[in-house]
Every structure is written in structure tokens, then in C-alpha cells.
Design a protein around this nucleic acid. Structure first.
Lengths: 207, 207
DNA sequence: ATGTGTAGTAAACGAGCGTTTACTTTTTGG
DNA sequence: CCAAAAAGTAAACGCTCGTTTACTACACAT
């Protein structure tokens, strides 16, 4: 097979995302690919190395995506000025993209579920879960909303990202995933409109 | 030991909530209790039976809690009329209780993390996760808000429960858990106030 | 055509798994 | 007080785990 190493990584991710790292055996991965266990060890030194390759792959994808959008990669140190270019419309559109990315992209949706399953096992996994899926996006949106001149960026960010974050789980458990995606779009639009009204009020007060 | 069966259940839950069912061995549970493996089998027929006892325990607790609050246990079939007694203040207070329950109660917080880790493994676990933590509370709040006469109960419920649901994860990853709880209170109050304003507007329109 | 590295297989390794067995200690009720 | 039940132990069972080994099939540059 030509692309065996890649197939191993993708198949392992698929299984890890459903069962968790420990519950998946090297035999399971090999069987899902129609290979012998030995063949896997031609491409990876250990089961752990497959897992770590998945982590590195996600890092690469994330860095690439940040470069594509040329948004600041480290939110913590940035001044709000760095976000001034974006509008609430941009933020809403960006959020819809993110929702689709974490639910529909084959790699990202599985990686999200993998992180969900591994988040309590050690500090590193917990930090990655926070960074990619919980406190990270929340703080990022808080900074964006702060740069938008909204009076209570923390609260608005929790509302905005909270409903998205909840819908990831609703999506995962839903029989009609398209409906979940449409609901996400509707909720994002609804909150965007509300924030725009708030923003207009703010600007009327302090121009 | 007098209370061995109970200790086994609680210790297993503690470990399952951190590592997941498969990653915890019977040896791990026995060692954490300072017992031999054989002793565990005096009290439970199998590792699986410990797990299922945990599920049944949660069911019992949940049913008891519903009885204590004498709120309807099955939200699906109920008419909004059943909720007319509650106010938005009641709902906010109830939500703060729920947040503390799922984060601070030793059994419930571990059970929440256990469900989080097992949700993708089979349909039963997925359904329980949805019922206790995702779509279930969302629909419940939607019905409550609908009974409150709010114009867009689905949207308000997603905002309200979304921020709580996100804060469960922020809480889990936070070094300062008290701050996360205080933030949850603040966010719930903030949204309650907003919903009360909306409610007053609605009532002015249609008295 | 052939030598060489690459990708594959089947089988075996020791360790750890959930569970059972044979046995000992502790608790308890008449 | 003492038999019987309950609660505990240590060791072994068969099985599966991740990994290694010995060997085979094949692509391909010289």
C-alpha cells in the first residue's frame, strides 16, 4: 500500500475518537485496515507514537489555519487593537466556519471527540482541551468583543461561545445533524443581531 | 471493613471519571482501597457490574431530586402549564443549584465526567449524556421559558444553558474553581435580568 | 538479471487483564 | 462459646495487550 502511514493515522484517530486511547488495541487498528500488527510497526515505533502524531498533525493544521486567516496566534499578549479590523458580521461568519470545522471536518471533528475523551487523563490533555475547545475560544471571543467596544465582553463571549459549545454536543448526539448545524447558524445570527444593537447603543453614547 | 461495597463503588467512580472505564483495571480499584482483587468479587460479580451500579445510583439520585423539587420528571409530554408556578428568579436560583450540583457534589461531578468520557462508546451512554447534560437540560429550559411567555424560548434556552454548559468545562480546567462558580452565578444573574426585561416588554404588548 | 531496501506476514514474547479457586480470618446470632 | 456465614487473601487461570522476531514478497536502480 502506498499511503499506509497516513491510513494508520486516520484509522487510529477514528477509533480513538470513539473509544478512547486505552480502549483501542493495536490489533483493532490493524484489523480495521486489513493489515497485520507487525506492519503498523514499520511505520510507527509504538501505539503512543501514533497518538502523538495525531497531536502534532492538529498543531500543524491549527497553525496553518491561523496563518490563512492571519489572525493573531497568541491571544493573551495581544492588544485589542489587533482585532480592530473585524466586524461583528465577520465574527459571526468566522464562528459559523468554526462550527462547521469542528463538526464536519473529518480530522477536526474526530480530534475534538478524542480530546473530549482524554481531557481528564493528564495535565497536557486538559490544557489542549481548554486551548482548542473551552477557555481558549472563550477568551478569544472576549478579546474580540472587547475590541468591538461592547460594554461586557466577558458576558457576551460566554453567551456567544456557550451556545456554540453546547451545540457541539447536541450535534454529536443528534440524529439530524443538518438541523443542528442550521440551529447553530440561527443562534449565531440571533446573537450577532443583538450585539449589533448593543454596539449601536454604545456608539450613540460615546462616539 | 463495614462499608466495603459502597467504598468500591465510590472509588471505582473516582477512577472511571478520570481515566474512563477501560483504562481502569480491577487491580487499580483494589489497590486504591488497599484490598485484594478477590475481595471486590465478594461484592460485585464483575467490573461491569460496578459500572452499572454507578448508573443505577445516578438514576435513583435523579429520581429523588425530581421528587424533592416536585418538578415534572418527563419534560417531553408535559404541557407548559405544568411550569407556570415558577418565575425567572426561581429558574435562575434552580440553575445555580444545578451548576453547584454538577461541579461540587462528589458523586454528581464524577458521574458527569464519567459520562463525558463514555458518551461516544455506545448508544446508551450517548443517550444518558444527552439526557443529563446536553439536549435534556436545554429542552427543559426551553419549555420553562416557553411557559414564561418569552417570544423565543429556544434561543433563550440555548443562551442560558449554553453558558452554563461551557462553564462546566471551564470549571474542570480551572485552577481557581471558586472563581468559575462565581462567574457562573454572575452570568446566570445577567441573563436572568435580560430575560426579565424581555418578559416585561412581552407583557406590555399582550397583557 | 540481480542486489538491496521497503512493506508486509505469522508467530511468539512477557506483562497485565478480568475472573476463579482454595483457603484463612473476622463477624455475628443463638 | 462456637458454628456458620461473611469478608478477606494469594495464587493461578485463560486471554488479550503492546511489542519483537524471523522470515517472505516485491519494487526498482544499477
Amino acid at each position: 500500500m502506498r499511503n499506509t502511514k497516513e491510513q494508520i493515522l486516520l484509522t487510529a484517530l477514528e477509533l480513538f475518537a470513539r473509544e478512547g486511547f486505552d480502549a483501542v488495541s493495536v490489533r483493532d487498528i490493524a484489523a480495521a485496515l486489513g493489515l497485520s500488527k507487525g506492519a503498523l510497526y514499520r511505520h510507527y515505533q509504538s501505539k503512543r507514537e501514533i497518538f502523538e502524531s495525531i497531536l502534532r498533525r492538529m498543531e500543524r493544521r491549527d497553525a496553518q489555519q491561523a496563518r490563512d486567516r492571519d489572525l493573531p496566534e497568541e491571544t493573551a499578549e495581544q492588544t485589542p487593537a489587533a482585532y480592530q479590523g473585524a466586524s461583528l458580521d465577520d465574527i459571526a461568519a468566522f464562528s459559523k466556519d468554526m462550527f462547521r470545522y469542528w463538526t464536519e471536518d473529518p480530522f477536526a471533528s474526530r480530534f475534538r471527540r478524542l480530546l473530549t475523551l482524554e481531557q481528564f487523563r493528564n495535565a497536557e490533555m486538559g490544557a489542549l482541551y481548554q486551548q482548542y475547545l473551552a477557555a481558549g475560544p472563550l477568551e478569544y471571543l472576549r478579546d474580540l468583543f472587547s475590541a468591538q467596544g461592547l460594554a461586557r465582553p466577558q458576558e457576551e463571549a460566554a453567551l456567544f461561545y456557550g451556545q456554540m459549545f453546547l451545540l457541539y454536543s447536541v450535534y454529536d448526539g443528534s440524529e439530524n445533524r443538518q438541523a443542528a448545524t442550521e440551529l447553530a447558524d440561527r443562534l449565531i445570527d440571533g446573537l450577532r443581531d443583538r450585539l449589533q444593537r448593543l454596539q449601536n447603543e454604545e456608539r450613540r453614547k460615546e462616539p
